[in-house]
């Protein structure tokens, strides 16, 4: 899921100072699990804005904020509240915010969160980054552990000289990704896989902005 963190509300206030009336949009998926876009977070934002002399005209926690069409349909019932607002504050991730940018052609849209990473929830409201969506997955060759993400240098060919007692040069509390890979390959009796030198990464596979359509194939199938 996409991990988000609340911005400092005073910074948000500064950014939106020109406006008085806001419509708030959260998200029932990732941002709810992160506690940044659920009903509670929206209420907190409403209270904060109102205590600073602003007005909240309405709010919605759509099912999936980054599902542009679905969110647009859900917003229909809030047509008046939306029309009444000077600006929209989106309390999900950068993707959800840009769905709103697309939906609200004539209103400014502001994010209330910082989007951090694609994360695994390890325990309730504790998140770790394991994959950075590189476009061409290599972990079939690295013991199912992503060196591009778990190693701060993203090294593809073994540990750097900074590894110390199994820990990472960059964060001494975190195990070196390559020591983890080594240990797992060893326990799986797969060390021969670690002998291979992976080719330099083809970064063009993850060129921005990514886009993908699986539509035409499905249409073909139906025919």
């Amino acid at each position: 899921m996409i991990i988000t963190k609340k911005k400092d509300p005073n910074n948000i206030l500064e950014t939106v100072k020109k406006y008085d009336k806001f419509f708030l949009i959260g998200c029932s998926e990732c941002a709810s699990l992160c506690g940044t876009g659920n009903e509670e977070a929206l209420q907190e934002m409403t209270d904060f804005l109102e205590s600073n002399g602003k007005k909240v005209t309405g709010q919605l926690v759509p099912k999936t904020g980054c599902q542009t069409l679905g969110t647009k349909i859900e917003l229909k019932k809030d047509k008046e509240a939306c029309a009444d607002a000077d600006a929209v504050i989106v309390m999900s991730c950068g993707a959800g915010t840009q769905s709103a940018t697309e939906i609200f052609k004539d209103k400014p849209v502001y994010p209330s969160n910082d989007s951090l990473f694609l994360g695994n929830m390890t325990r309730f409201q504790m998140f770790d980054e394991r994959c950075s969506l590189c476009g061409e997955c290599v972990i079939g060759k690295t013991a199912g552990i992503c060196p591009l993400t778990n190693c701060p240098k993203g090294l593809l060919v073994g540990p750097c000289g900074g590894m110390s007692d199994g820990k990472c040069e960059v964060s001494p509390d975190v195990p070196c990704a390559w020591v983890r890979i080594y240990e797992r390959q060893k326990s799986l009796d797969n060390l021969d896989e670690m002998k291979e030198v992976l080719e330099p990464k083809d970064w063009s596979a993850g060129q921005k902005p990514g886009n993908l359509s699986t539509r035409s194939e499905k249409k073909e199938e139906k025919k």
């Binding site: 701060p152 240098k153 090294l155 593809l156 060919v157 750097c160 900074g162 040069e169 960059v170 990464k201």
Partner: peptide, 25 residues
């Protein structure tokens, strides 16, 4: 040919690290 110390060790901690390739490559 070296990988190089991470930017977090240096005096431009906000720099984007590259590591497009590494020492063996």
């Amino acid at each position: 040919c070296m990988t190089g110390d991470h930017t977090s060790a240096g005096d431009h901690k906000e720099a984007k690290t590259v590591y497009d390739i590494e020492s063996v490559q």
